[in-house]
Design a binder for these strands. Structure first.
Length: 271
DNA sequence: CTGAGATCCTGTCTGC
DNA sequence: TGCAGACAGGATCTCA
């Protein structure tokens, strides 16, 4: 589900609804996520106040008064929902947070690839997860990124999915970004010229911004915190369009599976 | 340093 | 209708 735009939408929703509230209970319903949810979280966050909520890459951060904060990752199927009923239990609910205004925030994750962890210094995420550049700051790191890209012998699509290069891009937006910048997904990164590279950075910014302003992408089940669906999928040019005609050249969109991930492209428009 | 493939897990869709 | 297999917005590990 969640690439940078979806996580951003979730984080904005949380900020709007629970910033400044106090947790009256932090309950672990099912600790089995990608990493086991630390039991002490139930004690640590009880009666703590949410001071800041923000996003780093595909991670969400909740800052509290005190020294312990929370980092969460939504994996493929992680989602939040609000409830005002204490008895609201659904299959695959993992975390139940009760706020001092009576609202209950539930974290549900079917495939359990997401997680909740304690973090003391959020900036340390950049180090221990080895995160790369935030898409919003790309323009400030043009030289840095160019120096990396011209040394990489892997294909550009793999590089875009590498969170230690640029953080936040996932499988859907990688295909869309490469179509927008007219770059063939399996082109070796080091062979991309400066002009295409500049176009690539522009496309990353453009596509991600448009996705955010569209409320994210809903293919199966992404929804924001109050249940609204995203609609960026209506703007897809290549993702999920294999066998359909390219909007630009009328050639058929191709799907290739590589490294376990599907890649969509137009082999006329993308060189 | 690369790519390929497996793995974690569950639900849904496709084809026979 | 049933069932096996493929596939899914991610990240990480092993092996070649």
């Amino acid at each position: 589900m969640p690439e940078l735009p979806e996580v951003e939408i979730i984080v904005r929703g949380l900020r709007k609804n629970i910033l400044g509230l106090k947790l009256t209970e932090f309950k672990i319903v099912n600790k089995n996520l990608r990493y086991e949810v630390p039991k002490e979280m139930e004690v640590i966050y009880k009666n703590k106040i949410i001071k800041h909520i923000f996003r780093i890459g595909k991670y969400g951060i909740l800052l509290f008064n005190g020294k312990s904060h929370i980092v969460f990752h939504l994996g493929m199927t992680g989602k939040f929902r609000f409830s005002n009923k204490k008895t609201d239990n659904q299959k695959h609910d993992h975390i139940k947070i009760t706020l001092n205004n009576g609202l209950i925030l539930l974290y549900n994750d079917i495939r359990k690839f997401g997680y909740f962890s304690i973090i003391n210094n959020p900036i340390s995420l950049y180090n221990f997860k080895n995160l790369g550049i935030e898409p919003i700051y790309l323009k400030n790191y043009t030289d840095y990124l160019w120096n990396i890209i011209k040394k990489k012998n892997k294909d550009i699509k793999s590089l875009l999915l590498d969170q230690s290069f640029i953080t936040g891009i996932g499988n859907i937006y990688a295909s869309e970004i490469l179509f927008d910048s007219k770059i063939f997904p399996f082109k070796t990164a080091s062979k991309i010229n400066k002009k295409s590279f500049t176009k690539l950075l522009n496309s990353i910014e453009k596509i991600l911004e448009k996705a955010i302003s569209s409320g994210g992408t809903t293919i199966k089940d992404f929804q924001n915190i109050v249940g609204d669906l995203g609609y960026f999928q209506n703007s897809f040019k290549v993702y999920g369009r294999e066998g359909l005609t390219c909007y630009k050249c009328k050639n058929l969109i191709i799907k290739i599976k590589s490294k376990g991930r599907s890649t969509f492209f137009c082999n006329i428009c993308q060189k």
